[in-house]
């Protein structure tokens, strides 16, 4: 459970930093009147962004827990790591491309060039779809090679983790689809900017999660854990 505890420590650090800005040491009974403008209405960020950030913390928690479970299960004797198909690297590239495309969409939306926004959004969506397709192909390859879901916990975790990540991408594609449609209907970038930024934020986060999962699945995390365990003992 160390992974999730570390993750939550980071969250607690962020929450603690935020709380430390909120004058928790003040004596509210001595203060009367409308308190200074900086304390008027929370932060200046739009609520949707805060909402997405909180949601991403929950998603991060989910994957941190899966990682914790993976690490705990991995230490039992019946674990046999499965080989990673080469295609996975191509998929990773596609997802990175998708993330970059959405980043360009954000830049374009800030500059106000609607055409670029539309192009970037479509590129991002298509590469993400290609990533999903690639993931399905990877799974089919593995099954064809005899790595069935229930034959070994390493296989079970591989399908569970990629599946869970894929579902989150799929959910994101709905949001991206809606934003893309709006980008076609709206002539001005200001009206879609927030939506584009939210999509990009979600995409970058899922790319980060995927890279984390890849490290785990490739077994690099195992070496790291060995070192940690050596330090602890």
């Amino acid at each position: 459970m160390s992974v999730i505890v570390i993750f939550l420590t980071v969250i607690a650090g962020i929450a603690g930093w935020w709380l430390s800005q909120q004058r928790l040491m003040s004596k509210p009974w001595l203060e009367e009147g409308v308190i200074g403008p900086s304390f008027d209405t929370g932060t200046s960020l739009p609520s949707a962004k805060i909402g997405l950030a909180v949601f991403l913390a929950v998603v991060g928690c989910l994957f941190a827990l899966l990682t914790s479970a993976y690490v705990m299960r991995m230490q039992l004797p019946d674990w046999q790591a499965l080989p990673l198909p080469q295609l996975l690297w191509l998929n990773t590239g596609l997802l990175a491309l998708s993330s970059i495309a959405l980043h360009f969409a954000v830049l374009a939306a800030r500059k106000g060039s609607m055409e670029t926004v539309r192009l970037a959004l479509v590129t991002g969506g298509l590469t993400a779809l290609a990533f999903l397709f690639g993931q399905v192909v990877v799974c089919r390859e593995l099954v064809a090679a005899g790595f069935f879901l229930s034959t070994n916990p390493a296989n079970s975790f591989f399908y569970l983790l990629t599946g869970m990540h894929g579902l989150h991408i799929l959910g994101g594609l709905f949001g991206l689809g809606r934003t893309t449609i709006r980008a076609w209907e709206e002539p001005k970038t200001e009206r879609v900017r927030l939506g584009v930024e939210l999509c990009a934020m979600y995409w970058h986060f899922l790319l980060l999660v995927w890279l984390g999962l890849l490290v785990l699945l490739a077994g690099w995390a195992g070496d790291f854990l060995e070192i940690c365990r050596g330090l602890l003992n």
Partner: peptide, 9 residues
């Protein structure tokens, strides 16, 4: 976080 009215610290 976001919905507090003016003065509501």
């Amino acid at each position: 976080l976001q919905g507090r009215t003016r003065g509501m610290t």
